[in-house]
């Protein structure tokens, strides 16, 4: 960001507009953090943003809540049967409880292609690490370990006494360490995989969000600017791709009074950098749009001839 924008101005606008300036418009699609990269069968490189642990924990909590709700509903629904004396009710309860406990995640992830209600709410999805189909055995494998990873630590937290009742101290310590190691496993690998993910070879990703904004070059401001401002090749050979895209981020922000000052400041900096008089009277938005179009045309033209200039010259 600091390449084109004065840093002071950024934090200032962030404070004025109230929302984080970084998260606006142009930044929406771009997620920070680790990525899963794979080559599609068409030999195109695809990238998926790996889901962060906070979102996954939240999704898990939602799913556990729904599971608990299911069990309570089961008890209520079947207690009627149970009271009537049929032990069919008990058998049904035991089996349904078993299903809810062990197969809630499996059934949903099979049906919804790697999503559970919690994951859906948070925009997460399970995919195979190699980009292949999410087959039944993958879903089984990644969810079979939940017993060990979720329910065991939970019961250890809620009722520490029931776990390894009467076992010697060292056994308790070993169990405790084992549970801690399992729980922290996702922190220690790049793809944030828990044990089940490692067994199945799966990754939890953020659903890719698709938002296509208008091309800045096609906007009316850019067209007006074409007529008003012209740049020499020498002036356009100073900045690189990085600066161009930082400028793109700026231009995609709404043109509010607060941003107007920022635009003016950036225009002044560019003028100085390309060797013009910084005090030259320009209409900031129109100037920047014009500069963006011209700069992009210049850099794209060079790229066609195999020259990619990533950064500014000096």
């Amino acid at each position: 960001m600091s390449a084109v924008l004065p840093t002071g101005a950024v934090s200032q606008t962030a404070a004025v507009s109230g929302t984080g300036a970084m998260s606006q418009a142009g930044k929406v699609l771009h997620r920070e953090g680790p990525e899963l990269e794979l080559i599609s069968p068409e030999h195109v490189r695809l990238r998926f943003a790996v889901a962060d642990l906070g979102s996954r924990a939240l999704a898990l909590m939602m799913d556990l809540g729904i599971q608990l709700g299911c069990v309570v509903a089961l008890i209520v629904a079947l207690s009627a049967l149970f009271v009537l004396g049929g032990d069919l009710g008990l058998a049904l309860f035991l089996i349904l409880f078993f299903v809810v406990r062990n197969f809630y995640f499996t059934l949903f992830e099979l049906r919804w292609h790697g999503r559970t209600p919690g994951k859906r709410a948070l925009g997460l999805r399970v995919v195979a690490r190699d980009g292949g189909p999410l087959t039944a055995d993958l879903v089984f494998a990644r969810n079979l370990t939940r017993e060990l990873e979720t329910f065991l630590p939970l019961s250890a937290l809620m009722a520490p006494g029931t776990l390894l009742d009467g076992a010697p101290g060292w056994a308790n310590l070993a169990t405790f360490l084992w549970i801690v190691a399992l729980t922290l496993l996702p922190l220690f690998n790049r793809l944030r995989a828990r044990l089940g993910d490692l067994l199945a070879g799966t990754v939890v990703i953020f659903e890719p969000k698709t938002r296509l904004f208008d091309d800045l070059v096609g906007e009316t401001r850019a067209m007006e600017a074409d007529a008003q401002y012209t740049f020499t090749p020498g002036e356009l050979d100073i900045y690189g791709i990085h600066e161009l895209q930082v400028l793109e981020d700026l231009l995609r922000r709404p043109y509010t009074p607060a941003n107007r000052e920022l635009y003016r400041e950036v225009a002044r900096r560019i003028l100085r950098k390309i060797g013009r008089d910084p005090q030259e009277e320009v209409e900031p938005a129109r100037f920047l749009h014009g500069f963006y179009s011209a700069q992009r045309a210049r850099l794209e033209g060079k790229m066609l001839f195999g020259v990619r200039r990533e950064r500014k010259v000096r």
Binding site: G26, L29, H30, S40, V44, L46, R47, F48, H113, G114, R125, V127, G131, E207, P208, K209, T210, R211, L212, F213, D215, L216, V217, I241, L244, Q245, E248, D249, R252, R296, L299, E300, M303
Partner: peptide, 19 residues
């Protein structure tokens, strides 16, 4: 193309379609 929004849009669109 150096339109970052365009490239990111297409990347994410293709990723979604891939799934």
């Amino acid at each position: 193309s150096l339109d970052r929004n365009l490239v990111e849009y297409l990347e994410n669109l293709c990723a979604r379609a891939h799934i």
